[in-house]
Design a binder for these strands. Sequence first.
DNA 1: CGCCTGCTCCAAACCGTTTTGGATGCCTGA
DNA 2: TCAGGCATCCAAAACGGTTTGGAGCAGGCG
Lengths: 349, 349
Amino acid sequence: MTLKELAKALSLSPTTVSRALNGFPEVSEATRKRVQAAADAYGYRPNMRARSLATGRAMAIGHVIPLASEHEMVNPVFADFIAGAGEVYSKSGYDMLISIVPEAEQERAYEEFKHKASVDGIIVHAPRSGDQRIKLLKAVGIPFVVHGRASKSDEAYSWVDMNNLRAFQRATNFLLDLGHRRIALINGLEDMDFAIRRRAGFEAAHEERGITHDESLMFSGEMTEKFGHDTTAALLARPDAPTAIITSSMIPAIGIRRAIREANLEMGRDVSVIIHDDDLSYLPNGRDDPIFTATRSSVREAGRRAATMLLDIIANGSDTPRTSLMEAELLIGQSTGPAPAHARTTDPV
Amino acid sequence: MTLKELAKALSLSPTTVSRALNGFPEVSEATRKRVQAAADAYGYRPNMRARSLATGRAMAIGHVIPLASEHEMVNPVFADFIAGAGEVYSKSGYDMLISIVPEAEQERAYEEFKHKASVDGIIVHAPRSGDQRIKLLKAVGIPFVVHGRASKSDEAYSWVDMNNLRAFQRATNFLLDLGHRRIALINGLEDMDFAIRRRAGFEAAHEERGITHDESLMFSGEMTEKFGHDTTAALLARPDAPTAIITSSMIPAIGIRRAIREANLEMGRDVSVIIHDDDLSYLPNGRDDPIFTATRSSVREAGRRAATMLLDIIANGSDTPRTSLMEAELLIGQSTGPAPAHARTTDPV
DNA sequence: CGCCTGCTCCAAACCGTTTTGGATGCCTGA
DNA sequence: TCAGGCATCCAAAACGGTTTGGAGCAGGCG
């Protein structure tokens, strides 16, 4: 059933039917109702491609998610972020177009999106420190919102981000308050912007109190269970083992917990662990009593916000870049406790 | 730069330019080269919406992934499945359209896909036992491939699935061979087709040997870490605790491991654990020496196969439904071992 | 009465491609 | 010489909507 057929069935012109269905004022309320009723009866749905061609709006948002070519790793937070964004899109009648593109072909992907006119806007995932994509997208001239920030970029652009620095600063302070002095950081890959900021927060907390942080306690790698486990196992074998560990996500934390148990130590008593929890739906940290003490910020909520922001930019034009900084909450779980006495005494506070 | 402009710049008709670019024989090799060169120089890319409208093909595949409304759970395997499918699409110039739809609105989503003409085919995720979507999609008349199967459906349709029954049968047999007689099954939600088949495999292995399986050792729930942990903790507290556990995924297995440790038992010695491993990129079980003994089947590979199959159906018409059954490999890790002696002696073999 | 305004509606152009159905000119063979 | 065939190109009609620029008609006002 096309609009023309519907018009013929109603003995009306396509113009009138189109206006009636799209709520323009130039059509009487009586005929509008008649048209609407007929449309419902016939189950008429406008062909999006035709409409897009006529209006110039694609009614779709593109997500290009980078595939780190070496390890073929798909970032586990994408699923939840996209679920959040998807909620918003479907409420506004937008579609979500996803391309999974190897790091090297990203540029081409954005230009194709633009030229093929298949999307009205783009969400940029996983920005690196001096990400060149932002410059590219500005040049291409397509509305976009970045999930995260690109530290070294001097361009102005719209973003939604979690306050990574503040979260890790608070987490570190929490441990310092508990008397811990040797704290390890098991961070994500530090070419990612978020990892850089987290490290900065970790260092800032130390500096605030004039405590020098030990560079040999800071690690960066892909956030797998194995990375958490192996790093922790090595740490605990050292004579100067840390009494606390901060890590970037639930997944390495599981490995950390395993290594602690294997060393016959108890998490929360012998070694404190604090994580950042993206509140992933399939890896819950426990709502009521969290397993891990954690800084929590829902990545799904970030998806909602980024989508809302982008749709708003598309609708109202982007006079000036918008930004949204989400604060993480600190949840006290069972994985942290005061620094063991022996550690405190041997430490020159 | 539109095709018309390009044609004008070349002093050719749009027809000729279109034919030249699309490799039709009615254009001389000389002009074809000239057109191609100009297209490259101007960076011309055809507008997909216009092309779609003219050809009737959307060059896009729809994935509608159900959102279990109650818990807002996003199945963690989607990310990897979609990564696999995405690889195939981008090679063939297809886009991937994703809608995340609450269980209740699935029907509407499919019909919209069809009527809005925004996709050429659909991948159906997470089929339930008597899934009504298959009938619906056949009625709508849109090519589709199911990831998994719908057990009770008598319709014929195309699918890609892992041999869930066989995998769990083998896993169970492996444990039975090791002397285990009380084996627990910590399964996914048993309205999902895959969970039903896994249970069937578990039961079949027992029946083969005339061993009655204890219904009180079989559990079904959402596959979270907590579910694995709590179920195992309760099991191990029983006087007739099982000596082995089979579970559906890496995530509950992590909880199982935690509960075993908390009971001061050792995994692989006191309690054997065997999992199904979807080979998720962000939750690797270890390539060379797996942590868990596991039946492994890459869900990313399943994504590739489903996408390839669907594109083939779209291109060559679906005379008869295609199917592809993937066998899981059994990898021996550190989480299994012979049944403890005390268990073996008390058990009437 | 004539003119203007406002309310409804419509014919036709347009969006950027593909595709149909020729048109043109050249070459070949009878 | 002329019909027929072939190679090459093009004008115009799709595809299914939206949008522009009126047209027709009624009522209000001077």
